[in-house]
Design a protein around this nucleic acid. Sequence first.
DNA 1: CTGTTGGTTAAGCATATGCCTAAGTATCAT
DNA 2: ATGATACTTAGGCATATGCTTAACCAACAG
Lengths: 115, 115
Amino acid sequence: MLNQQIDLDLLFHALADPARRAMVERLSRGPAPVTELARPLPMSLPAAMQHLDVLETAGLVRSEKIGRVRTCAIEPRAFGQIEQWLAARRSEWEKRLDRLDEYLRTLENERDGHG
Amino acid sequence: MLNQQIDLDLLFHALADPARRAMVERLSRGPAPVTELARPLPMSLPAAMQHLDVLETAGLVRSEKIGRVRTCAIEPRAFGQIEQWLAARRSEWEKRLDRLDEYLRTLENERDGHG
DNA sequence: CTGTTGGTTAAGCATATGCCTAAGTATCAT
DNA sequence: ATGATACTTAGGCATATGCTTAACCAACAG
């Protein structure tokens, strides 16, 4: 829970790249080895590994190496941080718009009452 | 709706910076002029403007200049794109985990039935 | 008209990012 | 032991990012 600031930096940054989102999309449908994640991407294997590393550092993906193959899986809990931040923003502006709405209704009522 | 790929790149990238998130947090509580958004940030005004530009290009913020003051506001609809993408991922892995769960229950029943 | 406020543009610089190729390691298959 | 597979590490390069300062413009206040 410490350093949410940095966590959000890493999380949003990790998802701000189509190659990394493609990996996340693939992993959402089930675990996969590094090579399978890299295959559809228009880049070398080392480049793909760097993207994978970004995802792991952000905590969006975990991986375990068995024999010579590293199997990757998504870490659903990491997405919670993002959803929480978004929900917090949404609740703030909705509250504000509700207040505005209420205020406008009050004005309208006053007009109706005293007109 | 076109080019969701690029949209998501811009959206996630825009939110991957603490200064920009601070602006979004401020604007969630109501509109504000550029100077007010920049004041709390540990950087020059031009630097802050560049961040603001990133937010506007991503569609997260809109702004209007009246006289010499530019007033900024959040664009709630832009957040929908992100939430939609996250929800799609979540639904994929939840579906998968449900299937796994169901499969494990089947195994258990078979064992109980034939044991 | 003059100064101040609020914003904008431009140029430059230091560091970070995203990719590459080449080479290395460890496992598994024959 | 030999070769193939699945990564992994290292080094390097080209471009992008995130700032800075300096200068500029437009609007409003006195």
